[in-house]
Design a protein around this nucleic acid. Structure first.
Length: 329
DNA sequence: TCTCAGGTCTGCG
DNA sequence: CGCAGACCTGAG
């Protein structure tokens, strides 16, 4: 059973650009017939969303409820479903952020004003689920975009709860309480099965998802999030405290921490500084001098303030599309 | 065959 | 603190 509605607003969004800019919080949503499809949650009930647009000042949303919703039906407030979906879409695509005001800000800096031409309508793409952002970000370190994207899809398929919709089955991302107990590699899986199957069939382990040596990081971080720190606590912290908190997770260094905070939790003052941002900022602001990543991060946070996260997003995309990246290699 | 990828961890000065 | 080296793995 499908429903649909349209969201019209004063501001703008380029959905395709926002989906495909390679932001490190989650893979793009699944593309089906020109629509971007994924699960969002209303009162912990997964809802299938299909988003597309006809023009840059509106979003069209189709949504489906799970087929075997059964006793969950009571927790879906039919009357308010549409309103609640709008709120969640608003949050995920940061639709309350005034892009035009941001463009005014960019145009005041001659080094930044050209970024707009390559990125008009690009918005922050927040995780529907901060845990997925954490695991994604850990998996992204020293990895290629295609590979970590596949890893996340594999994790969903192997341990995520399958939910049936009339459009097909979609997998949730597993919770830390489950992921903390999965096997790290085929050997560990093999041992636990007491030789009941051959080693070559041991494919339900983290490493088989393609996360490589990050498998123990993901598992230990899941343990911490099951036992010591509640995922939601981080929403209530200030940026500094949140940064220090996620830094304690194995596999999380300063770059991954800022990605988690920006894309997973919406801390816009975060300035994820990877090798590219380091090169871009050095080139634009420091005459191409070799400055450490941590200094670049401090510069970004100080210099761009509340816009740091968006500036990082726009700079990265600009460098990719303008040819600056190739030049800086 | 060989390098490299949106860093982090470890060990050392 | 600041700085090398190692590191899964598959695409090009």
């Amino acid at each position: 059973m499908g429903f649909s509605f349209s969201m019209k607003f004063d501001n703008l969004i380029n959905l395709e650009l926002t989906q495909k800019s390679g932001q490190t919080s989650q893979p793009p949503w699944i593309e089906m017939h020109g629509k971007y499809c994924d699960l969002i949650y209303l009162n912990e009930v997964p809802i299938l969303i299909k988003a597309y647009q006809d023009d840059i000042t509106s979003l069209n949303i189709n949504y489906e409820l799970p087929l075997d919703i059964g006793n969950l039906k009571d927790s879906v407030d039919q009357k308010n479903t549409e309103k609640n979906i709008k709120n969640e879409i608003n949050r995920i695509f940061d639709l309350n952020f005034d892009l035009n005001r941001f463009y005014d800000y960019l145009s005041e800096d001659s080094k930044l004003e050209t970024t707009v031409d390559f990125s008009r309508g690009l918005r922050l793409f927040l995780a529907k689920n901060p845990f997925e952002a954490i695991v994604s970000s850990i998996a992204s370190a020293n990895n290629s975009i295609v590979r970590w994207t596949k890893s996340i899809a594999n994790i969903r398929k192997k341990w995520g709860n399958p939910v049936k919709f009339s459009s097909g089955i979609f997998y949730e991302f597993p919770y830390p309480e489950l992921l903390q107990f999965v096997h790290e590699n085929d050997l560990e899986e093999f041992d636990s099965l007491n030789g009941s199957i051959d080693m070559e069939f041991c494919i339900k382990n983290l490493k088989s998802c393609g996360v490589g040596y990050r498998a123990p990081y993901i598992k230990k971080t899941s343990e911490i999030l099951s036992n010591d720190i509640n995922l939601l606590e981080i929403f209530n912290m200030d940026y500094e405290e949140a940064f220090e908190t996620v830094l304690t997770f194995p596999g999380v260094g300063p770059k991954v921490a800022d990605c988690i905070l920006l894309y997973g939790y919406g801390f816009k003052e975060a300035f994820p500084t990877d090798i590219w941002i380091k090169r871009i900022i050095s080139y634009l602001y420091f005459d191409n001098k070799d400055i450490s990543v941590s200094k670049i991060r401090e510069f970004g946070i100080e210099h761009f303030g509340e816009y740091a996260g968006y500036v990082q997003l726009y700079l990265f995309h600009y460098a990719r599309k303008s040819g600056l990246m190739n030049k800086l290699k």
